[in-house]
Write a protein that binds this DNA or RNA. Structure first.
Lengths: 120, 120
DNA sequence: TCTTCATTTCGGAAAACGCCGAAATGAATG
DNA sequence: CATTCATTTCGGCGTTTTCCGAAATGAAGA
């Protein structure tokens, strides 16, 4: 019950759900999600922590950045079914499409910025 | 998105989830649920209203009482999948078993009370 | 018609939540 | 070492949620 409620509480905020949908395209670092949603980094970090504690996403640290991705096949059944349910229910909505469109814009220049910082 | 968030918000409270699980055994009236959970009638009514607005349960008025039941096959896909997910994730937990046990106790005397009122 | 009674609605109090900016963390760089 | 910088944690503010008791509703019974 505790695990299940952690999932439903994580899904009860629309911005967290949008973040899950954005992560379908692949892993994103905190700064990319911050740019995508227009929130303060601390806000995004907190949302991601709630999703991670619920088991819905996982994180990986690489160089300067922390990348978040959707939980994989090895996640508990309740988590996998929750992610499937979110995806099936919302993948084809206008709001998801709008976020995906914006993600394309954001992600290209951001990669360039990362490259510049790394002097590659 | 609005409909989906109505469902996730409805599921984000553990007492509402418990009510959904209790309704698996069949329809219950407000006073039975009140007895089962130990809340004020106004509190139970409000929880049920939230579940109903999310489409997860339906209501039926009969004589003095309003009976609530789980949404049926004709409900939207997102609702059916949510109910399946709740059921699959929590049907076999201790908490659900405890509620079911208490429901057996509550429901028998309560039926008797109803009978007495109806003088049958 | 007047009462009764299950349920709902309303108003308010306490707790939880979502957001931010400031400070802390901690790993990589110079 | 000291600095930089992405991220996290902390403190606080305004909003939302959850609970209750009191009042309103509305259908059934006297």
């Amino acid at each position: 019950m505790r695990e299940f409620m952690a999932i439903t509480k994580a899904l009860s905020d629309p911005n967290r759900v949008r973040m899950l949908l954005a992560l379908r395209r692949g892993e994103l670092c905190v700064c990319q999600i911050t740019e995508l949603f227009g929130f303060a980094p601390s806000t995004v970090s907190q949302h991601l922590a709630i999703l991670r504690r619920a088991g819905l996403i996982e994180s990986r640290k690489s160089e300067r950045w922390v990348y978040y991705r959707l939980a994989d096949k090895s996640a508990p059944v309740a988590v996998r079914e929750a992610l499937d349910w979110v995806h099936k229910s919302l993948a084809n909505t206008d709001e998801t499409a709008a976020d995906a469109k914006k993600a394309k814009k954001i992600l290209k220049p951001d990669l360039a910025t990362i490259c510049r910082r790394q002097k590659c």
